[in-house]
Design a protein around this nucleic acid. Sequence first.
DNA 1: TCTGGGGTCCTAGGACCC
DNA 2: TCTGGGGTCCTAGGACCC
Length: 424
Amino acid sequence: MTTLFALCDCNNFYASCERVFKPALNGKPVVVLSNNDGCVIARSNEAKALGIQMGEPLFKIRNLVDNRHVHAFSSNYVLYGDMSDRVMQCLSRFTPNIEIYSIDECFLDLGDFYSKDLNAYAREIKETVHQWTGIPVSLGVAPTKALAKVANKLAKKSKKANGVLVLTTPYHIQKALEATNIEDVWGIGGQYANFLKKRNIHTAYDFTQLSENWVRQHMTVVGVRLLKELRGESCLELEEVAPPKKGICTSRSFGKKLNNFEEVQEATATYAAKCAKKLRKQKSCARLITVFVNTNWFSERDSQYHGSKTICLPVATNSDIELIHYANIALKAIYRDGYWYKKSGVMVTDIVPENQVQLDLLDTVDRGKHAKLMEVIDGLTDRFGRGKVSVATQGVDKAWLLRSDMKSPCYTTRLSEIQTVYVR
DNA sequence: TCTGGGGTCCTAGGACCC
DNA sequence: TCTGGGGTCCTAGGACCC
């Protein structure tokens, strides 16, 4: 059986989302910033043309932003998540077999469409998504996922392709591989790119000429899989159902540096509650919780400290109350006075399905009661918005909160004005 | 002054067991 | 003095992705 994949990738996704609701920004440079308005994480084509790099800190390009009238937005993940859902729903009308690969990318199984005019079909997909959601996308079509990635990159880059490139013949595939720099290949990061270039491997085509043994020796079985994929042998299947996560992490840099235990504790408790919520969403419980704290490692003045502590819970849980309790214990064990803290985080691992939790005979926690309470809290959160109901440790003043001074409204989701309630 | 956050997979090496 | 061999599990670290 011949395989055929399309990779649909939203162009400059976050920047495009902002533009959908502010069409006056079309044709103008737009950037979206990371949490705390720290660095650039999305750029419109006009912003790229100004030389603004991905990941560049805002303060380094302040002049450019001001002088060239670059429109900067704080990130608004609720908006982007909702726009992503709309794009994916639209795509699923074209084939039921899709894999949502990331917030802005989707693989489509086009195996049944080989006899169709693939160029016309891909273009129809592209135009429909744009019409329905306002988001511009590019499509690459090829016999393997890695080749679909190659096709997608070229579809974006080439004026002639204009957002759609179909690679089905050996001739076109070879031309595409020759036109793709090795560092632009999916699965080749900076380390491997340097390593390969030193050995005179500069394009994706050069890479396909290597021997399987050599690649295995230097790049593990992952490299071999990529080699086969680029040679047209499909090794990566469409994963329509996302497997449950094996680890869940919530961490943030604080809006300002902190040297006060209570404030770090509030932030950390909030991250623990976020982990609990993510666990409940995928109907899992976790048995290991890790808390870590960091000072600002960019600062040359402040003395540096990194602490982390993992605690094994007697019984796996997804309750806010329990995870906050153990997060507090872990934090107390690693917190040292006399440092300026910039970031903390909570990670939960050893994750099991909710209905397969091993119980402990000496367990003193009323799990039924916790589950009921969490159900109520989740219900309130869904109706009235995040942060309206919380465990008291999470704090009220929140001096540690992120900065996001340039955030767009949540155009697509409801906001609420209900009084905040605290559960003790 | 200001520098993101959240994941995956693979391998090597040590501990431990029979 | 001689000092096995194979298997599993765990962890740390390194690579990658968006």
